[in-house]
């Protein structure tokens, strides 16, 4: 039962990162769009699906609270500021999405909210991952690091890294969905963003291995697991080929593969810890009766249904967007 909820949580988080990742990325890129028609195309490329994407953030939160309350309590109190800033960023950007078309005079302000909110949300998510990899100061299962305990150069680097990663996801999505000069501009950005992301991933992986002996042992004992980072590297090469040949579908598929590989690499490095080297999956899990109570409703029905809903939304919205459509 614990493993079932680990799987639910992992799938929810991965889906969130992939789905909201590309629309946060598009949000950040819209800040440098340059012109209104371009910005309009970019926003149309995510308009029908962005709120569906964000539901995975909520599914992840309630799965964490319900199935791993101890971990939820530690993480939320440790990440008080980043979580609340992330939420404020997400709300502002959601509102900006809906209201920018209602005004001409104030549109610039909503555009700032849209790209700024996306940037803040993405940066905070990266910071939290970084702080978690570095390790949180805990005493008796309570966070004792203070309100800025999560802030460090490494965490900030991870924040920047995730912004670059999301921007790359966003650029690849734009290549897939748009035509004309938006597609061209996105193609030109992809090489810069992907080099930045790969450099960042290598730094983080090296840091995790060198700073934490248990992580190093994991990789030395089970070298076959290196297939994951290797998949990421191959995907990066395939993406480069796709970009050179201007094959619109390939870059997004490949960047998704890179993200899945990185996510898997991170998870394997620290398994079975949920909070590295303090709380394991078993220690963080709710008792069997709580997990079973949730399983019969949420696990068996709602979660599969959310997966189906996401699949249908994405498949209805496939193909290039119509550049002349009005939001």
């Amino acid at each position: 039962m614990v493993m079932f909820w680990v799987a639910v949580l992992a799938i929810s988080m991965l889906l969130y990162v992939l789905l909201d990742g590309f629309d946060l990325g598009v949000g950040m890129l819209s800040g440098v769009a340059g012109s209104e028609p371009r910005r309009h195309s970019m926003m149309s490329a995510v308009a029908p699906i962005w709120d569906g994407n964000e539901t995975w953030l909520v599914v992840a939160a309630v799965s964490l609270f319900g199935a791993f309350p101890a971990v939820y309590a530690i993480l939320m109190s440790a990440f008080y500021l980043p979580v609340l800033l992330m939420l404020a960023g997400l709300i502002l950007r959601g509102v900006a999405f809906e209201f920018r078309y209602k005004t001409q005079r104030m549109r610039w302000l909503w555009d700032v909210c849209f790209s700024g909110g996306s940037l803040v949300a993405a940066f905070m998510q990266g910071v939290m991952v970084g702080a978690l990899v570095e390790g949180l100061p805990l005493i008796d299962g309570r966070y004792v690091g203070g309100e800025f305990g999560w802030l460090s150069p490494f965490a900030a680097l991870c924040g920047v890294g995730l912004c670059v990663g999301y921007a790359l996801l966003g650029a690849c999505w734009l290549v897939k969905k748009c035509e004309g000069d938006v597609r061209e501009a996105a193609y030109r950005l992809i090489p810069h963003l992907s080099v930045g992301l790969l450099a960042f991933l290598i730094v983080v992986f090296a840091y995790a291995v060198l700073e934490n002996l248990p992580v190093m042992h994991r990789w030395i004992e089970r070298p076959y697991l290196l297939v994951l980072p290797a998949t990421g590297a191959l995907a990066a090469i395939a993406m480069a080929v796709g970009v050179i040949q201007r094959q619109d579908q390939i870059p997004f598929t490949m960047v998704v593969l890179i993200f899945v590989a990185s996510f898997g690499t991170l998870a394997i490095s620290f398994w079975p810890y949920m909070i590295p080297f303090s709380i394991t999956v078993e220690q963080g899990a709710a008792p069997e009766s709580s997990l079973a109570f949730m399983f019969w409703g949420e696990g068996l029905f709602v979660f599969p249904l959310m997966l189906i809903y996401t699949t249908i939304s994405l498949s209805v919205f496939k193909g290039k967007i119509d550049a002349n459509s009005h939001h």
């Binding site: 319900g66 199935a67 309590a73 949730m294």
Partner: peptide, 25 residues
Amino acid sequence: SYQFGTNWSGFSAAFGNIIGPLAGY
């Protein structure tokens, strides 16, 4: 859904086994 933890981590840790699944539903 986040504030149970950000504001009341002591509560979430002690009573999450009961409140968490209900809030999840």
